[in-house]
């Protein structure tokens, strides 16, 4: 395999088209895309773990850490550079994951799901209790600069959009490489049969630990980009329904391909925004029906529509 293969080229080409789109597409559309791509990064975190058979119902934890790092870094530490802030969120999130990952990797199945949910809800509780951070109202993110340049209004949104596309592309390339490297293959083996992997002389726990850290890192980036785009953060980012939505999108896309979460997140954003517009009273029902439809007709996720390998074994 060459360093960048066909899929890699496709990813880069798509990113280039999306960047070019910044100057053509209407602002509302680029904004939806920004949020969807940022969300997709968190979904990537969920998918990375899902490939190893773990479903996190608390990925909002790292999403929220990434977001709050942007706000707090600006308000408390006086950091205003977007890249420094994103790096701050990344470090904070991976640091946190390094500690709780030691506990989390002992759990599987539903227990992993529930414990991750509980931890994320504890962060939610702490933030709700913190009146200086605005409790549930959260606070706004002001005056972010990009390598020393500050943009105003619409240009700032374009800057965030381009940044999001670039970061997403970089993450996608990294995840794609690791998925097809040894560690990615072992993860699938762990999902299928953990004990056999142990017999092969590998330590599933430390591999899962590594995946947990990677998931935390990309989720924090997603949170940071969301905070930059909306300019507002609140504890809802750590609430369990937010995490539930990430799992929802992960299943919508499927775990077959690294691009699937991006496609699913964009599709989800459009389904939701149009559902809210046309049936403001029953948009949840429409989401539910779409999800059921996907599970019934496309059990491998949306990507199975694109995949040429039609006879994938279940």
């Amino acid at each position: 395999m060459t360093y960048i293969d066909r899929t890699g080229l496709w990813l880069i080409a798509t990113a280039a088209i999306l960047v070019a789109g910044a100057f053509v597409l209407p602002h509302w559309l680029t904004f939806i895309l920004t949020l969807a791509l940022a969300k997709a990064l968190v979904v990537q975190g969920v998918v990375v773990q899902m490939r190893a058979g773990l479903v996190s119902f608390g990925q909002g934890l790292f999403f929220c850490v990434g977001g709050y790092a942007i706000g707090l870094g600006g308000n408390l530490l006086g950091i205003h550079d977007a890249f420094a802030l994103l790096a701050l969120g990344l470090v904070a999130s991976v640091g946190l994951a390094a500690v709780i990952g030691l506990l989390m990797t002992r759990y599987r199945d539903i227990f992993f799901a529930m414990l991750s949910l509980a931890l994320s809800m504890i962060l939610f509780g702490v933030l709700v209790k913190s009146q200086t951070l605005g409790s549930t109202d959260g606070f706004n993110v002001h005056g972010v600069s990009y390598l020393g340049v500050t943009f105003d209004g619409a240009n700032q949104k374009i800057a965030v959009y381009i940044l999001t596309v670039v970061v997403s592309c970089a993450c996608a390339l990294f995840l794609y490489r690791s998925q097809h490297a040894g560690i990615g293959r072992v993860c699938e083996a762990i999902r299928e049969n953990e004990i056999r992997v142990e017999y092969l002389g590998l330590s599933p726990r430390w591999i899962l630990y590594a995946q947990y850290l990677v998931a935390a890192a990309v989720s924090a980036l997603g949170g940071g980009l969301t905070a930059l785009a909306t300019g507002h953060i609140d504890p809802e980012m750590a609430f369990w329904t937010t995490s539930g939505e990430f799992v929802f999108i992960a299943l919508l896309g499927g775990t077959m391909h690294v691009a699937a979460p991006f496609v699913a997140a964009v599709l989800f954003a459009f389904v939701r925004t149009y559902a809210i517009e046309f049936t403001p009273h029953t948009w949840q029902m429409i989401l539910g029906l779409v999800l059921l439809g996907i599970i019934i007709f496309l059990p491998k996720g949306l990507w199975s529509l694109v995949s040429r390998n039609r006879r994938v074994k279940a």
Partner: peptide, 23 residues
């Protein structure tokens, strides 16, 4: 009128507000 559900958190509301304004 264009009626929007406020349920779903601030991030979603910012997105919907942009839709209202620009779309």
């Amino acid at each position: 009128t264009v009626v929007i559900d406020e349920n779903g958190g601030a991030t979603k509301q910012v997105e919907e507000f942009r839709n209202l304004a620009e779309r």
